[in-house]
Simulated assay, not measured.
Amino acid sequence: MHFRLAEEIINLSESKEWDFAKLEWSFEFAYYADELQKCLCGHYPIKNICVIKNQKNSFVTEVGNCCINKFLGIEDGNKIFSSIKKLKENIAASMSAEVIEYIYRKKGISDFDYKFYKSIYRRRIMSTKQCEIKKRINQQFLNFTSYETNSHFNKINLVLKWAETNTSFNTDFILSIKKTCRQKGRLTEKQLESLNKIIRDFKIK
C-alpha cells in the first residue's frame, strides 16, 4: 500500500522523488465520512479522511488519517478525529485547544464562539445557558467535519478557483453560500441545486 500511495502522491507532485515530493504537501482539512471511502493507497474501508494540498502546484487530494501520519508525517488530523469521536459520544464534552484553533482558523466558528469557548474551556461548573452555547458550538464543529459539508465546500471552492481565470463571473452568490456552509455545516437543497447548475452550465471541472 505504501508503494501505491507514494506513486499517487508523486504523480500529483512537482518532484518525482518521494522524499522531496511528500514535503510539498500540507494538511488542509479533515472530515469524518459516514459513507465508507477508499484511501489513495487503495485501503478500504476508511472513514477518517484528511484533505491535503500541494503547496507548489495547488493540487488537492484525500488520504486516510493512518497514511497521512505514517507515510507523510502529518499528524494534524489526530486531535480532530479524537474530538469528533469524543463529541459524538457526549456532545457536552470539550474539544481540544488545538481543535478550537483549527476550526476558528478555518472560519468554522464566529469570533464570539471562539472567545466564548476559550473563556469556559476549563470550567467544570457552568450555567444552563453556557452549557447550551457550548453544545451548539460542538455541534457546529461536528457539522463542519462531516462528509456532506466537505462535499459542498469542494464544489464551492471549485467554482471560486475557476472564477479566478474567468473574471467576468460574479462570485457574490458563491461567497454568500460559502458563508452559509461555514455557519450551518451544509447548504440548503435550493442552494446546492443552484451551485450544481452553475457547475453544469459553465462546464466547470
Rank of each mutant, 00 (worst) to 15 (best):
T149C: 15
I109P: 05
C66N: 14
I10H: 05
Y147D: 14
I198R: 10
R200E: 11
V159G: 04
Y104D: 03
Q37H: 10
Q130A: 14
R122N: 12
K134P: 09
F112A: 13
G108V: 05
K47F: 15
D201Y: 06
C50M: 07
K118F: 10
K79G: 10
S168W: 13
M126A: 06
I199P: 04
N143P: 01
D34H: 14
E75D: 12
F173S: 09
N196I: 11
F153R: 02
I174S: 08
L160Y: 06
K184P: 00
I49C: 03
C50G: 09
R122H: 11
S119E: 10
K190L: 10
Y32C: 08
F59S: 15
F144P: 04
I91R: 09
V99M: 07
I120Y: 09
C131S: 11
A33R: 10
T188M: 04
L72H: 02
S168E: 14
M1N: 14
E75Y: 11
I49N: 00
L187S: 00
Q183P: 01
Q130C: 06
Q55D: 04
S127Y: 00
I204A: 04
N65G: 10
S127M: 05
L195F: 08
M95I: 05
L87S: 01
Q130D: 14
A97F: 12
N54D: 01
L158V: 11
T167S: 13
T145F: 02
S94N: 15
S58D: 11
K107L: 00
D172I: 15
E75I: 09
Y44H: 13
H43G: 03
A92D: 14
S110V: 08
K86G: 11
K197S: 15
T61C: 04
V99I: 02
I199G: 01
S15M: 12
F144W: 07
C67H: 00
V51D: 04
K129T: 15
